[in-house]
């Protein structure tokens, strides 16, 4: 399998309050296409920061982030926005759906940003919502959906743009065990079907159990990686 995410000598140092905090302290990492990888670790270990930098949401202090053969460090913020739009699907801890749009509209939105036709957006949105088991709730607004349902809409949205990479930050943190189980099954199924590379952060053991590769991060460093074992 081809390496699609490559991180070399990555550092992220915050110095906002005058105190230097090394959120990422020299990480080297490679992820191959189609992997279903979990980055785990305690709160404050640097999982989210690492994920943000892989997703082009944050700039490293030093080091290289190469995603899909593209060096994110060298891209302007506008180029990064375009890159994310066409290559990365995000799933956030607190779902982050647009409250004034229905489930279907939320999924369509990201495709409309890509400039796809209305018909195509509508068809794919329905298809994805059915795939995550929400075929009967396509016209419901987020407020009318449970946490688990909202996160499933977020998964459908993340996949809508046919991204090569799905980055999920603590996707199950706000879900009960049944919803977590359900969501992970869906993500695994879609990982196989859509052939996207899944990278998610979590400190949930249930998530870790489902992952094919687990990377343990602590104090901004990788302390264990299944791939190396």
């Amino acid at each position: 399998m081809e390496t699609v995410i490559k991180v070399e000598k990555l550092y992220k140092i915050y110095n906002e309050t005058g105190v230097e905090v090394k959120a990422i302290n020299g990480i080297d990492l490679e992820i191959k296409e189609g992997e279903f990888t979990a980055i785990v670790g305690p709160s404050g270990s640097g999982k989210t920061t690492l994920l943000n930098m892989i997703g082009g949401l944050d700039n490293p202090t030093s080091g290289i982030v190469e995603v899909g053969g593209v060096l994110l460090n060298e891209m302007s913020s506008s180029q990064l926005i375009d890159f994310r739009k066409n290559n990365i699907g995000f799933i956030f801890q607190s779902y982050n759906l647009i409250p004034v749009l229905t489930a279907k509209e939320n999924v369509e939105f990201v495709m409309q940003l890509q400039g796809r036709s209305k018909k195509e957006c509508s068809q794919r949105a329905i298809e994805l919502l059915e795939a995550v088991g929400l075929g009967d709730r396509i016209n419901s607004r987020p407020a009318k959906l449970s946490g688990g349902q909202q996160q499933r809409v977020a998964v459908a949205r993340a996949l809508a743009s046919n991204p090569r990479f799905i980055l999920a930050d603590e996707p199950t943190a706000n879900l009960d065990s049944k919803s977590t189980e359900n969501l992970l099954d869906i993500m695994l199924k879609l990982n196989q079907k859509e052939k996207a590379t899944f990278v998610f952060s979590s400190h949930d053991q249930r998530v870790v159990n489902k992952a094919r590769r687990v990377i343990v991060v602590e104090d901004g460093k990788i302390i264990n990686d299944d791939a190396n074992n």
């Binding site: 926005i81 375009d82 994310r84 739009k85 990201v110 940003l113």
Partner: peptide
């Protein structure tokens, strides 16, 4: 938070 999310999923500054 929502505007940040919109920019994260690919909504450019002009939009």
């Amino acid at each position: 938070r929502e505007i940040g999310m919109l920019m994260a999923i690919g909504m450019n500054k002009k939009r």
